[in-house]
Simulated assay, not measured.
Amino acid sequence: MNPFASTLILLTVFLGTMLILITSHWLMVWIGFEMNMLAMIPILMNKPNPRAMEAATKYFLMQATASMLLMAAITINLMYSGEWVIMNVHNSMSSIIITVAMMMKLGMAPFHFWVPEVTQGTSLPSGMLLLTWQKIAPISVLYQIAPLINLNVMMTAALLSILIGGWGGLNQTQLRKIMAYSSIAHLGWMTAIMMYNPDIAILNLLIYILMTLSMFMMLSNNSTTTTLSLSYLSSKTPLITIALLIILLSMGGLPPLSGFMPKWMIIQELTKNNMVMLPTFMAMMALLNLYFYLRLTYSTTLTMFPSSNNMKMMWQFQSKKYTKLISPLIILSTMILPLTPIMLTLT
């Protein structure tokens, strides 16, 4: 892609999200989502092929439907209240429609079908942008209208997302699809706590973005897209393989690692609000995610792919690729659990 065009497109994606974050006017929120959607389509088609075109088409159809629902909800709210302010959603129907529109934009269950297909159909950098930056704007809208959201709709979607995010990734061998189902499950945890403590949801989003960025950077560094190609990493890049193992366990939420922090805080907060069964079910369904993360760690680090002795020493002769920011991202993705008391005081 032309450097000028790619810079302009990325700037539009950035400005669309920033517009949603700083505005308090519903019309500007809708314009921000439209800017974001239209600039994201050429990014998904960066390497033109039938799969990329299919992914871009699916993304456009789903996001356009969500934008249409959002505009319908804004219009209904304007008819009843005469206001464009985000915090003033006076009609229950418009509140439910806005929530559904944000769920569609995020790719939460039961509107999750497009996320694995779109992520699989595009390149690793585009998939990384889709699963990280594109989640910020809808989550910020849900954060602002959190006191006005219908509890039953949000909790049902959160539980379904955690279940489907774990269940869908069990039988996958494509790493981009696995990361997409992981995203669906993490969004379920974020939205489950959104009604009770939105600050914890934002913390969960930040930690999820750190872990996903680290994961995609390491996969892009080695051009790895399947579990089969993942099994060669121990002979190509031993240190990256160990880091990959730790980040996968962190994404699963195992205790000594960073990924355990948001799950711990969410379960604690839900229990404080006299909800015991809900976090119990969420923790049990999170084991499905942990299973396919462990399956990836098993194929990556706990087994050695059958190869000759020359292949096992390939890392000594391969040209070194240095990815910027990968070291601090790995540290933040795995070692910030001791900061939990500080985070609890901030939330």
Rank of each mutant, 00 (worst) to 15 (best):
T65D: 09
M68V: 15
T191W: 05
M87C: 09
E34T: 00
L329Y: 01
L175A: 00
L290C: 08
M53R: 11
L203F: 13
K47D: 14
N274D: 15
G121K: 06
S95Q: 07
S92C: 04
L287T: 13
S299R: 09
F60C: 04
K272S: 13
N197I: 10
A201W: 05
G121E: 00
I267L: 11
L346C: 09
T323K: 08
L244M: 08
V115L: 15
L187F: 10
F317H: 14
A109S: 09
L239Y: 15
Y208I: 05
Y298E: 02
A243S: 14
T122S: 11
L206Q: 10
K58D: 09
Y232A: 02
K324H: 13
I9P: 00
P50E: 07
A5M: 14
T280E: 08
N46H: 14
S250K: 05
T340K: 05
I136A: 12
N222F: 10
T280D: 01
I43R: 01
L296D: 03
L254A: 02
L228N: 13
M285W: 14
D199V: 14
I246P: 02
Y181P: 04
T227F: 11
P338M: 06
T241F: 10
N310V: 12
T99R: 05
M68C: 14
H90I: 14
L78N: 04
F113C: 07
L233M: 15
A137M: 03
K263E: 03
N274T: 13
M103A: 14
K135D: 05
T340Q: 06
S183F: 09
N221A: 11
L244I: 06
Y232E: 09
L296Q: 02
G121V: 07
Q174R: 07
L248D: 03
L163R: 06
G166Y: 03
L219D: 01
E117L: 01
T271H: 11
S24H: 14
Y291V: 14
S24G: 15
P110Y: 04
I164L: 12
S95V: 10
N204C: 13
T347D: 06
A146I: 01
M71H: 04
